[in-house]
Design a protein around this nucleic acid. Sequence first.
DNA 1: CGTGGCTTTGAATTACATCAAACCTTGTGG
DNA 2: CCACAAGGTTTGATGTAATTCAAAGCCACG
Lengths: 258, 258
Amino acid sequence: MAKYMHFKSSPGLPRARSIPLAPHAIMPLCAACEIREFTFCSVLRDGEIERLQAIVRQVRISPRQILFREGDDADNVYNILSGVLKLYKLLPDGRRQITGFIYQGDYLGIASIGTHSFSAEAASEVSLCRFSRRKLYQLFDRYPALQSRLLGIATDELTAAQDQMLLLGRKTASEKLASFLLSLARRMAPCGAGNHDITEPIPVPMSRSDIADYLGLTVETVSRTLSRLKKTGHIVIADAHHITIARPDALRDIAEGF
Amino acid sequence: MAKYMHFKSSPGLPRARSIPLAPHAIMPLCAACEIREFTFCSVLRDGEIERLQAIVRQVRISPRQILFREGDDADNVYNILSGVLKLYKLLPDGRRQITGFIYQGDYLGIASIGTHSFSAEAASEVSLCRFSRRKLYQLFDRYPALQSRLLGIATDELTAAQDQMLLLGRKTASEKLASFLLSLARRMAPCGAGNHDITEPIPVPMSRSDIADYLGLTVETVSRTLSRLKKTGHIVIADAHHITIARPDALRDIAEGF
DNA sequence: CGTGGCTTTGAATTACATCAAACCTTGTGG
DNA sequence: CCACAAGGTTTGATGTAATTCAAAGCCACG
């Protein structure tokens, strides 16, 4: 990575784009929430869910809008109802590392010292449930399972972070892209609907530049590497935002470094 | 990272080496434990600490001994009493990513699905407190603060993991080494004894090859880059395992990418 | 004092970055 | 409806930071 590499910031206005996504959930009531089972909310049973209902507020943001910035006070935590957010850290000269994409059902708000250690920006239309951290944590006493669940989420994220360190530190460009596509396929399966049919086109909601910043590459290398995977018959690129995995096992071998 | 790069595994016998470390704590009793305040044990007060004493077992391992491997059942969790452990993941061809070094006072055992997602190997003589995960978690009911503390630890680790992703994905070799030395200086300060006097030589207990695998570089690049930092007057290399930060502010600027 | 493992240094190579330009798509305004 | 402007994506030519290959120091230890 050359240090004088620089990136465009995301200035100007959010502009809606028609990236196909999971249908937008508009969820007035926790009790009727379709994705409740996939979030920490599931630890509260039907009679208890009003506790959450009382402190939740729904929010909606557009692509390129920033939910919070690195260093901001982490007063709130969120569940993603629909859409995609990117989490990232910046260096002073604009180099960017995306530390994660988060999707429907994901939790956002693990934060150590009361401030966010990364920024969060919408990559599509996003709707979220916002909770005051303070009020949520107050429920820990009455509902200890809530805290267990958060510990479980943190633990899973830590495991994913370690995988990503292996990817960033030791994988080649092809291996990075193969790993990325496979995890995207896994994650893009509708919440809980078992595995994504691997022969279906995968929606790729983020830009090439976002992918590059997630994998520690440049846009050009991402594009070139995808083209190569296409030429070798591992994937089919319908358009920039729809990719089919043609040979899943072969791609897995690449991803794992065989 | 070229995929055909290969690393020596750590075969053969552990061999004790005289790397200067924090003095080995031999701690028969939790109540008298010197580093208790710096571990999760501190959430149990004097009257309660016997709960831990009852389930703890002290363990000692030598350099190159492996505490557990990726994929092993994560039945136990540990606190490091003294020494240094390295945590790593491997690719099939031997490429290795060290995801963390852990030192005196650190907790080891955040694991998602019941199995370890990384291997843990001693980098020096190491003594640890071993707890049965099951028995420790049983204490959660009676001492909820225990779980809070573990959540706090997980959260801190996640923040560190994100910093490391930025380093691996977007920093140059010099920036990586500068960041590494600074975090080592911070961490090598005796437990809780405020900040390490930055003008003191930092003990560097791990090998160049370990540093390389931690920073996503090769041994040669680590060595060359350290030599360059030495030539530019940023650091003084007393010997391979003792480095002084001569110009802390300048080094910080490098580390942060200015 | 010689052997083996680590570390350092040098020369050649390469995977990926940078620079540059053409190509799409999508939205806008005449 | 079409021209065109603006971003994003792809492809090509060139450059370079870091790797690879090679070999010489340097300790520590038997």
